[in-house]
Amino acid sequence: MSLPHRFNDVSQLEDCLSSPSEALVNDLGRVPGDLMILGVGGKMGPTLARMAKRAAPNRHVIGVARFSEPGLRTQLEEQGVDCVSGDLLDPETLDRLPAAPNIIFMAGRKFGSTGSEWLTWAMNSHLPALVAQRFSESRLVVFSTACVYPFTQTHGAGTPESGALEPVGEYANSCVARERLFQYFSHQHQTPGRLLRLSYAIDMRYGVLHDVANKVLQHQAIDLAMGYANIIWQGDANERALRALAHCDTPTSPLNLSGPRVSIREAAIGLGERLGIEPRFTGTEADSALLIDCTQADRLFGPPQVGLDRLLDWTADWVRRGGASLDKPTHYEARDGKY
């Protein structure tokens, strides 16, 4: 797919985010059967579901969520996605779901965790146990997070999948529980799978660059304490997640999912140049950050299609024109694990 110079509206943006490559079509051809996405109603779920349907138009793609966002279910159904409404923590919802051979697990809770940790643990540890047992004979590709790792030195390559899990904060600890429970049941039932440790997908409506660009535009100081982050275009992240169905291990194994390390200072300067505004900064870069090594994913899928310069161009143009925002800050700058 040829990439646009800019996005005129949300419709064009979502079309690009859900455009499948030939490599995805080929990989999905290796994993026959229906595909079900649990937690399809989140930030990435709708475009991932649409990408799956476009890559395999003759296959049933099923999206499961509470569908609290008005119009989302209708939109997905118009795009060919079969929708099931329900609360995944309700055993009756899980019982009535079809036994699809391919599962993408996207359900989870991060923001708002502080103050209602009990719900975060239920979503991130209890639900995975239920799902792993209910779909023990399916391929299970599970969205996790790079927050399961400790901070690492900023001058290094980032933490590889073999790195120790030493998370900061309750949210991140609950995500380790999610992984361990999927691993346990994968060992018990020989369920093939992958645990995708995602770090900061980029959409024009949210993400690290969206957060930084808005601060530049509003002349707000940008905190440099978390001076670096891995980012990846959401279209690339969607594709890698779906292609992972053809690259599952038995028992399941982790896979870091992101793009190259980005300097927050340099990204802000680049956005400022495009916006005609000099960024303001506060603090200095710490010598550690939450960074991951994505060599293994690059070896499987090739490098991400969209690079930093294009993301900076798109983001600056979008925020300058007052493009839509999901109003969901990433809190990438948090060093205490509280979200």
Results as ranks from 00 to 15, higher is better:
Leu308Tyr: 08
Asp317Tyr: 03
Leu3Glu: 14
Ile202Met: 12
Cys16Leu: 15
Ser113Ile: 05
His155Thr: 07
Ile202Gln: 15
Ser21Gly: 12
Gly39Met: 05
Asn230Phe: 06
Asp82Thr: 06
Val262Arg: 02
Tyr171Glu: 00
Thr250Glu: 13
Leu48Asn: 03
Ser199Tyr: 04
Arg197Met: 01
Gly270Met: 08
Ala56Ser: 14
Phe182Met: 04
Gly259Val: 00
Gln75Ala: 09
Leu38Met: 13
Leu38Cys: 12
Val168Trp: 00
Asn238Pro: 06
Ala146Trp: 03
Arg30Met: 15
Ala221Pro: 04
Val25Ile: 15
Ala213Val: 09
Arg299His: 14
Pro98Gly: 08
Ala213Cys: 13
Gln75Pro: 00
Ala268Cys: 05
Ala225Ser: 12
Cys16Trp: 15
Lys328Ala: 13
Ala157Ile: 12
Glu22His: 14
Ile202Pro: 02
Arg180Ser: 15
Ala99Glu: 11
Thr93Phe: 04
Pro57Thr: 02
Glu92Ile: 11
Cys147Gly: 06
Cys248Gln: 08
Asn8Val: 14
Pro329Tyr: 13
Asp34Gly: 15
Ile231Thr: 09
Cys147Met: 08
Asp27Phe: 07
His210Trp: 13
Tyr184Asp: 10
Gly108Asn: 00
Pro20Tyr: 08
Ala268His: 02
Val148Met: 03
Ile222Trp: 01
Leu300Asn: 01
Tyr332Phe: 15
Pro70Arg: 10
Pro32Ala: 15
Pro98Thr: 07
Asn238Phe: 04
Phe281Cys: 04
Leu242Val: 05
Ile103Glu: 01
Gly80Pro: 01
Leu97Asn: 02
Gly322Ile: 05
Ala23Ile: 01
Ile37Leu: 15
Leu3Gly: 10
Pro98Ile: 07
Leu217Phe: 13
Val25Asn: 15
Val306Ser: 01
Glu266Thr: 07
Asp90Arg: 04
Cys83Lys: 03
Lys328Gln: 14
Asp313His: 09
Lys110Ile: 06
Ala100Asp: 06
Leu94Lys: 08
Gln188Val: 14
Leu217Gly: 10
Asp203Val: 09
Leu255Glu: 00
Ser144Arg: 00
Arg197Ile: 00
Met106Gln: 06
Ser18Leu: 03
Pro46Ile: 00
Ala164Val: 11
Tyr149Glu: 05
Ile277Cys: 06
Arg321Val: 12
His155Met: 06
Asp287Cys: 08
Glu166Pro: 03
Gly193Ser: 14
